[in-house]
Simulated scan of single mutants.
Amino acid sequence: MSSDDERDLDLIRTATGELARKFGLEYWREKDKKAEYPWEFVKAFAAGGWLGAMIPEEYGGLGLGLSESAVMLHEIAASGAGTSGASAVHFYIFPPGPIIRHGSEEMKRKYLPLVASGDLLMAFGVTEPTAGVDTSRITTRAERTSGGWLVNGQKVWITNAQNAQRILLLARTSPRTEERPFDGMTLFFTDLNRDRIAVREIEKLGRAAIDSNELFIDNLEVPDEDVVGEVGKGFSYLLDGLNPERIVVATAQVGLGRAALEIATQYAKDRVVFDRPIGKNQAVAHPLADSWIRLTAAEHVAMHAADLYDRHLPCGPEANAAKFLGSEAGFQACDRAMQTLGGYSYAKEYHVERFWRESRLLKVAPVSQEMVLNFISTKVLGLPRSY
């Protein structure tokens, strides 16, 4: 990466960091407590043009790369917004990817400017309760009709569905085969029609400000113009969203870990026990130092993956490695912050318990650590498939 690129990233880091920090820790504590969507925060980033970071300029965006977006997500999480703030913005970053690369010109001109301005909120409908991490076994089906499709099925852990106007929906349009299990799935970018889609919110451990939902789809009519790319190739298009998702999740987790580390470090300096600050004890200092090292290493891997993506080079192994390392380092930093604060870590006024709850999620989502190891062991090391 050139020095000019580094300067550009520094400018973005400063601008987005300053904007995110206008929304303090108490703002996020209240949003988490009341389970309220952070619309004020989203609108502030929309006003700055940041929601369209990766949308091309001809469609109303900034035309930036994944590297810039990854830096922005890091700064949002590191500001104390954590996963709640990062999730509220990153759904404008990775879900539009398949539309940008494979959508029709009419689709892009109609919807991408609305996404970039924050006037259109998307949901991402892939996961199903009976398929788990094996996307090839989804059972939501789209049947051909005159001039369109009729969709029936169920989705789970769908973010934003309480408020989203449209959904990027994956459905089977032809049966699964053992020879080519990922063929025969089609992506639709269509209305989240509440008359045909029942949306039920899931009560969960963390990130309460951002809703997660079950969807029950009953005879949803989808016109042909809502098909993204070619029928039957939807899973391959998803990769244009999934690798960026892993990368921005990694940098957000690093940012979240750094937010926790900052609080823990200050506490270790200020808290006096047995007539000395607890940070003078290596049992406290060394775990925090170790977390700093791991967060820094994870960030470097994630930014390398983002750079590969921006240069249109293969980045699957690096994107998955970034997600693995970012999730591990982020959660470990939050857990160590809990340990450093001791009993006070349970007090919401210190905020680290929210960071801990939010960071734990990303060890199992959007892909589990075990599935990352499966990918690396088979695709990179060439070992026999174990699943």
Rank of each mutant, 00 (worst) to 15 (best):
D10C: 14
T16Y: 00
R29A: 10
K31S: 08
K31P: 02
K34F: 07
E36N: 05
F41V: 00
A47D: 06
W50V: 01
P56G: 10
G60S: 08
L66N: 04
H74F: 09
I76M: 00
G85Q: 01
A86R: 00
F91M: 14
F94N: 04
G97S: 09
I99R: 08
R101Y: 09
H102V: 07
S104Q: 02
P113Y: 06
D119I: 08
L120H: 11
G125I: 01
G125E: 03
T135L: 12
G148E: 02
W157N: 10
Q162M: 14
A164S: 05
L169H: 07
L169D: 03
L170G: 05
A171S: 10
S174Y: 15
R180N: 13
G184K: 08
T190P: 04
D195Y: 11
D195S: 14
R200G: 11
G206M: 02
A208C: 11
L215I: 04
D218E: 15
D218C: 13
E221I: 13
K233H: 09
G234E: 07
F235E: 10
V248F: 10
G255C: 03
G255F: 00
R258T: 01
I263H: 02
T265A: 07
F274G: 07
F274S: 12
P277G: 11
K280L: 10
D290Q: 15
T296I: 01
A297K: 13
H300P: 07
L308M: 08
Y309L: 14
R311I: 06
H312K: 15
P314F: 14
A322H: 03
E328C: 08
A329H: 05
Q332A: 12
M338W: 02
S345R: 03
Y346Q: 14
A347K: 14
Y350V: 15
E353V: 15
R354F: 09
F355K: 03
W356D: 03
E358D: 13
L361H: 10
A365F: 12
R385E: 15
